[in-house]
């Protein structure tokens, strides 16, 4: 064993101590509160998505003639297929929720401020990737919602001035939903987006490791002497515990509210009530409130503002030091999002 380890170390000149040194960042004490671990939660769920996604890809056949049948096979016939599919679906839902909550936490604690502006932007790109993965994901089932959701989504991109038509063609692989569309969605969902996310996550974590986690102090903590604790093993154990809790929640959700299958996609019949997944309710309602290009451009503008928020915030604070404007804007934004989501959920059209 020793010689083998020695042989290996000659060729891979890192040992456990070095690796630990590299990753064992000091963790601020506020992270002993579990709600500050919302960054680790989407990361864990992302791993669940990769594993269950790879498993599902063993059976999934991305073509209009076979997609629905293969999903049916997974759901009804393959051993534990319904469970794996349920995990994938519910982990996606929880992941989006966790990413959003993580982002809110970062926003309201001001953790995006200098020098962490870039990491906010990377985080925002991760949110966009997650949403796109959600969109392409439910398009793969090839049920009515998949087909018409994809069609509607593609036509929304069409509304973008100048490049819209080009983007739509790129997305659908043609003027309309066709034989090539499903495989495009599949590659986006199963390869392009995950790889992009892995790279973004690496950068995200590296920046955190280099800059350290934002330190917060709470009133009752003020008399505590030490501000940090070890990542190994203390914080890691917390994350492992959270991971197990997530697995239990996912298993229960997958069992109690299993991933169902709607009617097979029918290019000739648009269903009476057509709604995207819940995380697109905001955008969907927004599109109904404003017409075509206005809605798309305004949505794009809001997204862009969110992307650049650290700089906007800095600009506000330069002008008015000590301003709480960002918090109020944040609260307003959250309220609008909740209202639009509830509105969309409550009405049929």
């Amino acid at each position: 064993m020793t010689s083998l380890a020695g042989w290996f170390r000659e060729r891979f000149p890192f040992d456990g101590d070095q690796l630990r040194e590299l990753t064992n960042e000091p963790v601020p004490n506020h992270l002993k509160r579990w709600w500050f671990c919302l960054g680790g939660t989407p990361a864990y769920l992302f791993v669940v998505q990769i594993i269950t996604g790879v498993l599902l890809a063993f059976y999934y056949k991305p073509a209009p003639s076979t997609a629905y049948e293969s999903v049916r096979y997974i759901t009804e016939e393959a051993a534990f297929g319904w469970y794996i599919r349920g995990l994938h679906k519910w982990a996606a839902t929880l992941m989006i929720a966790a990413v959003v909550l993580h982002q809110l936490r970062v926003f309201f604690t001001g953790a995006y401020r200098k020098p962490r502006e870039i990491n906010w932007m990377i985080g925002f790109l991760l949110l966009v990737c997650t949403l796109m993965a959600g969109f392409t994901g439910y398009s793969l089932v090839y049920e009515q919602l998949s087909y018409w959701g994809a069609t509607v989504g593609a036509n929304i991109t069409d509304g973008v001035p100048l490049v819209g038509g080009f983007m739509k063609q790129l997305l659908l692989g043609g003027e309309v939903y066709n034989q090539n569309t499903l495989s495009r969605f599949f590659i986006l969902h199963g390869a392009v987006l995950p790889v992009a996310m892995v790279m973004l996550i690496i950068v995200h974590l590296t920046i955190i490791r280099i800059q350290g986690v934002t330190e917060l102090k709470f009133k009752e903590q003020e008399d505590e002497k030490e501000g940090h604790f070890n990542f190994f093993p203390d914080h890691l154990l917390t994350e492992i515990g959270i991971g197990l809790v997530l697995m239990i929640i996912l298993s229960v959700l997958a069992t109690v509210i299993p991933a169902s299958m709607g009617a097979k996609a029918d290019p000739l019949v648009t269903p009476e009530v057509i709604k995207p997944e819940w995380f697109f309710y905001v955008a969907f309602r927004w599109l109904k409130l404003f017409t075509g290009t206005v809605a798309i451009l305004s949505m794009g503008f809001i997204m862009f503002m969110m992307f650049l928020w650290p700089f906007i915030d800095a600009w506000i604070r330069r002008r008015k030091p000590g301003s709480e404007a960002s918090v109020w804007i944040g609260i307003l934004g959250v309220l609008v999002i909740i209202c639009l989501t509830v509105w969309e959920a409550a009405v049929a059209h």
Binding site: A79, F80, W82, Y83, M247, S251, V252, T255
Partner: peptide, 10 residues
């Protein structure tokens, strides 16, 4: 235990 529940459902 939750997986045993899953097995039972299966």
């Amino acid at each position: 235990a939750s997986l045993l529940f899953v097995q039972w459902m299966e």
